[in-house]
Nucleic acid binder design. Structure first.
Lengths: 217, 217
DNA sequence: ACCTGAACACCGTTCAAGT
DNA sequence: ACCTGAACACCGTTCAAGT
């Protein structure tokens, strides 16, 4: 009831800090994420963050696990192939929605609880579908590669969008035109190609391939 | 013949700077690569580098293209599948040999002449093998995803090596044991698994899959 | 043409001091 | 228990000054 309440700040916590970091990185890019700016966004001095978080790496790891939490669990679809397909598509959507995903994962690695939870549920599903353990690992790694590799390309592609092609890059591509005839012949198609369709094309090849491997051993 | 000659320095150049940067990043890690340390390694002040290089990003882009130059061209093997398989394996070997590959590519993108040259030769080969253009792009993206995704996992895996598992991570994994039963049941196999074998398992599934797609359309 | 020293505007992090 | 100000050891980059 007092006026004070309006200005009372939420207490800081690791979760609140990680969320603020995600917002800041989404809005201004990962290279703009500094302890000082993050503190400012939370209405606090940078040094206060160290009361709730080990160091900056700890925040970045928290952001990586936040991504995996966004993907959500495997759904209960009866067919393992359909369920795995769904979760792969969702993972790719989350990863490509945040441009800082790949730089961060490649710097921090993946070792948080949400990531392990997702992995655990997929492994369980494959085991239940009759895969021998060595094939479970093969399948997991091949699927994860596809998801991360594709997100990677979609995020870093030179062809990604007309918008992102600044003059410098455009000049570069024009200069390359006669040196790399096949690339430039396909350049228009490269810019127009649907990453969604391509991702699912590859995913289906992989899912059918590992299923065939299961059924022939 | 004079004593002076022994102390004459090679003139600086973009190539020499990029090579020195590669050496420094290999030896001390990418986060240790600063303009000041790089200058020191070349026997020069940091500010001199700016006479031969636009800025630090320019050096990092040069390092990315250096990687693609290491992979070398598509060989002339008659069978396109064999030739593409070879180059994919070589690419993965180069990428995983330098821990800074993925962080750098994910931050810088891929837009150098060596990278375009490799892409051009693969596209040419697939066109010659009778792929329609839309399938060429699908094939390229799926193969590139597999190479980068796998290099990515091999580089960032928590399971990568006993050596790399510091006490902190080990404690984390032990704490997760009962929460993630399938992961921990497979942990030993995960640590022992051969990334080479798995990479080629997936690669063969993909190559056969795109070939089948070509032959049914 | 190339190199340098000093300076600027930033970093992450520590620590003693405050409440 | 939590927050802060000052400080330390770094960054990338600019620019006037030297040769």
């Amino acid at each position: 009831m007092t006026v004070d309440q309006a200005t009372v700040r939420l207490p800081l916590s690791r979760d609140r800090i990680v969320s603020a970091a995600v917002e800041l990185a989404d809005a201004q890019g990962i290279e703009a994420l500094s302890m000082r700016k993050l503190g400012q966004a939370l209405g606090v001095e940078a040094m206060s963050l160290y009361n709730h978080v080990e160091d900056k790496d700890d925040i970045l790891s928290g952001m990586v696990d936040w991504l995996f939490a966004q993907i959500g669990p495997l759904d209960g679809t009866a067919d393992w192939k359909v369920a795995v397909r769904h979760v792969a598509v969702r993972a790719k959507d989350v990863f490509t929605a945040h441009a800082w995903t790949l730089p961060l994962i490649s710097a921090q690695g993946i070792a948080g609880p949400a990531a392990f939870g997702l992995m655990d549920s997929v492994l369980a599903r494959l085991l239940a579908a009759g895969y021998p353990t060595h094939l479970v690992l093969h399948a997991w790694h091949v699927i994860a590669s596809h998801v991360m590799g594709y997100s990677f390309q979609e995020t870093t592609s030179v062809w990604a969008s007309d918008e992102a092609l600044d003059r410098k890059k455009r000049a570069l591509l024009e200069g390359y035109a006669e040196r790399f005839p096949h690339v430039s012949a396909l350049a228009e198609e490269l810019m127009a190609c649907s990453f969604v369709e391509e991702f699912e094309f590859g995913l289906d090849i992989i899912l059918s391939g590992i299923e065939a491997a299961r059924d022939t051993t």
